[in-house]
Design a protein around this nucleic acid. Structure first.
Length: 268
DNA sequence: ATGCCCCATTAAATGGGA
Protein backbone atom coordinates (compact mmCIF):
# COMPACT_ATOMS: atom_id res chain seq x y z
CA UNK A 1 0.00 0.00 0.00
CA UNK A 2 1.49 3.39 -0.93
CA UNK A 3 2.49 5.64 1.95
CA UNK A 4 4.07 9.06 1.69
CA UNK A 5 5.75 11.16 4.33
CA UNK A 6 7.15 14.69 4.23
CA UNK A 7 9.64 16.35 6.57
CA UNK A 8 9.88 20.15 6.64
CA UNK A 9 11.66 22.60 8.90
CA UNK A 10 8.98 25.26 8.67
CA UNK A 11 10.69 28.01 10.74
CA UNK A 12 7.45 29.11 12.47
CA UNK A 13 4.32 27.13 11.70
CA UNK A 14 2.03 30.05 12.50
CA UNK A 15 3.81 32.48 10.20
CA UNK A 16 3.80 29.98 7.33
CA UNK A 17 0.51 28.21 7.86
CA UNK A 18 -0.68 29.23 4.39
CA UNK A 19 2.39 27.70 2.77
CA UNK A 20 1.81 24.53 4.75
CA UNK A 21 -1.83 24.41 3.68
CA UNK A 22 -0.82 24.91 0.04
CA UNK A 23 1.74 22.15 0.29
CA UNK A 24 -0.73 19.72 1.85
CA UNK A 25 -3.30 20.51 -0.82
CA UNK A 26 -0.82 20.03 -3.66
CA UNK A 27 1.15 17.06 -2.35
CA UNK A 28 -1.21 15.38 0.12
CA UNK A 29 1.33 13.24 1.98
CA UNK A 30 -0.07 10.73 4.46
CA UNK A 31 2.06 12.25 7.22
CA UNK A 32 3.85 15.58 7.62
CA UNK A 33 6.64 16.03 10.15
CA UNK A 34 7.49 19.63 11.04
CA UNK A 35 10.44 21.14 12.89
CA UNK A 36 11.01 24.61 14.32
CA UNK A 37 7.31 25.15 14.84
CA UNK A 38 8.21 27.89 17.40
CA UNK A 39 4.79 27.47 18.89
CA UNK A 40 3.45 26.44 22.30
CA UNK A 41 1.08 23.47 21.95
CA UNK A 42 -1.85 25.60 23.13
CA UNK A 43 -1.34 27.96 20.17
CA UNK A 44 -0.81 25.34 17.46
CA UNK A 45 -3.00 26.05 14.41
CA UNK A 46 -5.05 22.85 14.67
CA UNK A 47 -7.94 24.09 12.53
CA UNK A 48 -5.88 24.57 9.37
CA UNK A 49 -4.60 21.00 9.56
CA UNK A 50 -8.02 19.52 10.29
CA UNK A 51 -9.49 21.39 7.34
CA UNK A 52 -6.75 19.95 5.16
CA UNK A 53 -7.65 16.42 6.29
CA UNK A 54 -4.95 15.96 8.91
CA UNK A 55 -6.99 15.18 11.99
CA UNK A 56 -4.31 13.39 13.98
CA UNK A 57 -1.71 15.66 15.53
CA UNK A 58 1.17 14.91 17.89
CA UNK A 59 2.90 17.93 19.38
CA UNK A 60 6.03 18.71 21.31
CA UNK A 61 6.22 22.48 21.15
CA UNK A 62 7.60 25.27 23.27
CA UNK A 63 7.46 29.05 23.28
CA UNK A 64 9.67 30.88 20.83
CA UNK A 65 12.21 28.23 19.90
CA UNK A 66 12.50 24.73 18.46
CA UNK A 67 9.36 22.56 18.55
CA UNK A 68 8.28 19.54 16.50
CA UNK A 69 4.95 18.24 15.27
CA UNK A 70 3.60 15.21 13.41
CA UNK A 71 0.31 15.64 11.56
CA UNK A 72 -1.36 12.68 9.92
CA UNK A 73 -4.32 11.45 7.90
CA UNK A 74 -4.13 8.21 9.87
CA UNK A 75 -4.67 7.59 13.57
CA UNK A 76 -1.96 7.03 16.13
CA UNK A 77 -1.78 4.01 18.41
CA UNK A 78 0.82 5.75 20.56
CA UNK A 79 2.52 9.12 20.97
CA UNK A 80 5.84 9.69 22.72
CA UNK A 81 8.51 12.34 23.15
CA UNK A 82 11.98 12.10 24.60
CA UNK A 83 13.93 14.87 26.26
CA UNK A 84 17.42 14.40 24.84
CA UNK A 85 20.17 15.93 27.00
CA UNK A 86 17.58 16.62 29.74
CA UNK A 87 17.32 20.28 28.83
CA UNK A 88 13.54 20.45 28.71
CA UNK A 89 13.56 21.60 25.08
CA UNK A 90 11.30 20.27 22.33
CA UNK A 91 13.38 18.37 19.81
CA UNK A 92 11.70 14.98 19.42
CA UNK A 93 8.25 13.55 19.00
CA UNK A 94 7.32 10.03 17.92
CA UNK A 95 4.16 8.22 16.94
CA UNK A 96 3.20 4.65 16.21
CA UNK A 97 0.58 4.49 13.50
CA UNK A 98 -2.69 2.62 13.93
CA UNK A 99 -5.11 1.43 11.27
CA UNK A 100 -3.96 0.29 7.86
CA UNK A 101 -0.34 1.30 8.51
CA UNK A 102 -0.50 -0.06 12.06
CA UNK A 103 2.79 -0.66 13.81
CA UNK A 104 4.92 1.76 11.80
CA UNK A 105 6.93 4.02 14.09
CA UNK A 106 7.76 7.58 13.05
CA UNK A 107 10.38 9.70 14.79
CA UNK A 108 10.65 13.44 14.17
CA UNK A 109 13.90 15.14 15.30
CA UNK A 110 15.25 18.65 15.49
CA UNK A 111 18.95 18.35 16.30
CA UNK A 112 20.61 21.47 17.81
CA UNK A 113 22.21 23.74 15.23
CA UNK A 114 25.40 24.04 17.27
CA UNK A 115 26.26 27.74 17.10
CA UNK A 116 29.11 29.31 15.15
CA UNK A 117 32.37 28.03 16.56
CA UNK A 118 33.13 24.29 16.12
CA UNK A 119 34.98 24.12 19.42
CA UNK A 120 33.38 22.62 22.53
CA UNK A 121 35.79 24.52 24.79
CA UNK A 122 34.44 27.92 23.79
CA UNK A 123 31.00 27.08 22.40
CA UNK A 124 28.52 25.25 24.68
CA UNK A 125 26.02 25.00 21.83
CA UNK A 126 28.44 22.89 19.85
CA UNK A 127 29.00 20.68 22.90
CA UNK A 128 25.22 20.30 23.24
CA UNK A 129 24.93 19.28 19.58
CA UNK A 130 27.64 16.62 19.89
CA UNK A 131 26.13 15.31 23.13
CA UNK A 132 22.71 15.19 21.50
CA UNK A 133 23.95 13.09 18.58
CA UNK A 134 25.85 10.80 20.96
CA UNK A 135 22.68 10.30 22.98
CA UNK A 136 20.72 9.50 19.82
CA UNK A 137 23.31 6.83 19.01
CA UNK A 138 23.14 5.32 22.50
CA UNK A 139 19.34 5.24 22.34
CA UNK A 140 19.38 3.64 18.88
CA UNK A 141 21.09 0.60 20.44
CA UNK A 142 17.63 -0.35 21.74
CA UNK A 143 15.24 1.72 19.65
CA UNK A 144 13.66 0.97 17.26
CA UNK A 145 13.17 -2.65 18.27
CA UNK A 146 14.96 -5.15 16.04
CA UNK A 147 12.74 -6.08 13.13
CA UNK A 148 10.45 -3.11 13.68
CA UNK A 149 9.23 -0.86 10.90
CA UNK A 150 10.47 2.64 11.67
CA UNK A 151 11.05 5.91 9.85
CA UNK A 152 13.21 8.68 11.28
CA UNK A 153 13.07 12.15 9.79
CA UNK A 154 14.02 15.65 10.65
CA UNK A 155 16.37 18.56 10.57
CA UNK A 156 19.47 16.75 11.79
CA UNK A 157 21.59 19.85 11.12
CA UNK A 158 24.51 17.80 9.80
CA UNK A 159 25.47 17.35 6.15
CA UNK A 160 27.53 14.16 6.31
CA UNK A 161 28.76 13.51 2.77
CA UNK A 162 31.18 15.47 0.63
CA UNK A 163 28.44 16.30 -1.86
CA UNK A 164 25.87 17.16 0.80
CA UNK A 165 27.41 20.66 0.78
CA UNK A 166 28.24 23.08 -2.02
CA UNK A 167 31.94 23.00 -1.17
CA UNK A 168 33.41 20.27 0.99
CA UNK A 169 36.69 22.15 1.28
CA UNK A 170 35.10 25.47 2.19
CA UNK A 171 32.87 23.95 4.86
CA UNK A 172 35.24 21.54 6.59
CA UNK A 173 35.52 23.89 9.55
CA UNK A 174 31.95 25.16 9.38
CA UNK A 175 29.42 23.79 11.90
CA UNK A 176 27.20 21.21 10.11
CA UNK A 177 30.03 19.62 8.11
CA UNK A 178 32.97 19.23 10.52
CA UNK A 179 34.70 15.88 10.89
CA UNK A 180 33.67 15.40 14.53
CA UNK A 181 29.99 15.99 13.68
CA UNK A 182 30.10 13.65 10.69
CA UNK A 183 31.83 10.93 12.71
CA UNK A 184 29.23 11.06 15.47
CA UNK A 185 26.39 11.28 12.95
CA UNK A 186 27.59 8.15 11.16
CA UNK A 187 28.06 6.33 14.45
CA UNK A 188 24.49 7.13 15.50
CA UNK A 189 23.14 6.07 12.12
CA UNK A 190 24.99 2.74 12.30
CA UNK A 191 23.87 2.14 15.89
CA UNK A 192 20.25 2.07 14.71
CA UNK A 193 21.08 0.30 11.43
CA UNK A 194 19.31 3.20 9.75
CA UNK A 195 19.26 3.35 5.96
CA UNK A 196 19.69 6.76 4.28
CA UNK A 197 16.53 6.89 2.16
CA UNK A 198 17.48 10.02 0.19
CA UNK A 199 20.88 8.88 -1.00
CA UNK A 200 19.33 5.67 -2.33
CA UNK A 201 18.21 7.82 -5.25
CA UNK A 202 21.13 10.21 -5.72
CA UNK A 203 24.66 8.86 -6.20
CA UNK A 204 27.19 10.03 -3.61
CA UNK A 205 29.15 12.02 -6.22
CA UNK A 206 26.15 14.21 -7.04
CA UNK A 207 25.08 17.28 -5.08
CA UNK A 208 21.99 17.00 -2.91
CA UNK A 209 20.70 19.89 -0.76
CA UNK A 210 17.62 20.58 1.36
CA UNK A 211 18.59 23.96 2.84
CA UNK A 212 19.72 27.29 1.37
CA UNK A 213 20.71 30.23 3.57
CA UNK A 214 18.49 33.30 3.85
CA UNK A 215 21.65 35.39 3.61
CA UNK A 216 22.31 34.69 -0.02
CA UNK A 217 20.93 37.46 -2.23
CA UNK A 218 20.29 34.85 -4.92
CA UNK A 219 19.91 31.48 -3.22
CA UNK A 220 18.88 29.66 -6.39
CA UNK A 221 21.58 31.15 -8.59
CA UNK A 222 24.37 30.72 -6.06
CA UNK A 223 23.00 27.29 -5.07
CA UNK A 224 25.26 27.08 -2.03
CA UNK A 225 23.10 24.58 -0.23
CA UNK A 226 23.50 21.85 2.35
CA UNK A 227 21.66 18.58 3.02
CA UNK A 228 20.60 19.13 6.62
CA UNK A 229 17.24 17.32 6.45
CA UNK A 230 17.19 13.57 6.43
CA UNK A 231 14.97 10.52 6.08
CA UNK A 232 16.19 7.26 7.53
CA UNK A 233 14.36 3.92 7.53
CA UNK A 234 14.88 0.76 9.57
CA UNK A 235 16.18 -2.38 7.81
CA UNK A 236 12.72 -3.96 7.23
CA UNK A 237 11.76 -0.84 5.23
CA UNK A 238 15.02 -0.43 3.32
CA UNK A 239 13.61 -1.93 0.13
CA UNK A 240 10.20 -0.32 0.54
CA UNK A 241 11.28 3.24 -0.28
CA UNK A 242 10.12 3.87 -3.84
CA UNK A 243 10.70 7.58 -4.50
CA UNK A 244 12.28 10.67 -2.98
CA UNK A 245 11.77 14.33 -3.78
CA UNK A 246 13.20 17.59 -2.47
CA UNK A 247 10.52 20.24 -3.12
CA UNK A 248 12.98 22.92 -4.09
CA UNK A 249 10.20 25.07 -5.56
CA UNK A 250 8.81 25.70 -2.05
CA UNK A 251 12.11 27.39 -1.12
CA UNK A 252 11.17 29.98 -3.74
CA UNK A 253 7.63 30.69 -2.48
CA UNK A 254 6.81 34.03 -0.95
CA UNK A 255 8.33 34.46 2.53
CA UNK A 256 9.68 30.90 2.50
CA UNK A 257 11.32 28.71 5.09
CA UNK A 258 15.04 28.33 4.43
CA UNK A 259 14.47 24.55 4.32
CA UNK A 260 12.69 22.74 1.49
CA UNK A 261 10.18 19.99 2.23
CA UNK A 262 11.42 16.47 1.50
CA UNK A 263 9.03 13.66 0.63
CA UNK A 264 9.52 9.91 0.43
CA UNK A 265 7.05 7.34 -0.86
CA UNK A 266 7.07 3.82 0.51
CA UNK A 267 5.24 0.63 -0.36
CA UNK A 268 3.99 -0.61 2.97
C1' DA B 1 34.49 31.63 2.18
C1' DT B 2 31.45 34.52 4.30
C1' DG B 3 27.11 36.53 3.72
C1' DC B 4 23.79 41.76 2.03
C1' DC B 5 18.63 37.59 6.38
C1' DC B 6 14.83 35.89 9.06
C1' DC B 7 12.02 34.68 13.30
C1' DA B 8 10.09 35.24 18.26
C1' DT B 9 10.13 37.82 22.22
C1' DT B 10 9.46 42.09 24.22
C1' DA B 11 9.33 46.72 23.51
C1' DA B 12 14.62 48.78 19.87
C1' DA B 13 17.40 45.12 21.32
C1' DT B 14 18.57 40.27 21.84
C1' DG B 15 19.06 35.35 21.16
C1' DG B 16 18.83 31.82 17.89
C1' DG B 17 19.27 29.91 13.50
C1' DA B 18 23.37 27.31 10.35
Amino acid sequence: MPFSLTTWNINSVRLRIEAVARFLKEQAPDVLCLQETKCPDANFPHAAFKEAGYEHIALNGQKGYHGVAIVSRHPFANVDARDFCDKGDSRHVAVTLDGKFGGVEIHDFYVPAGGDEPDVKVNPKFAHKLDFVDEMGAWFQREPKAGGKAILVGDLNIAPLEHDVWSHKALLNVVSHTEVEVTKFSRAQKAGKWCDALRKFVPHDQKLYTWWSYRSPDWAGADKGRRLDHVWVSPPLADSVKTMRVHRDARGWERPSDHAPVTVELAL
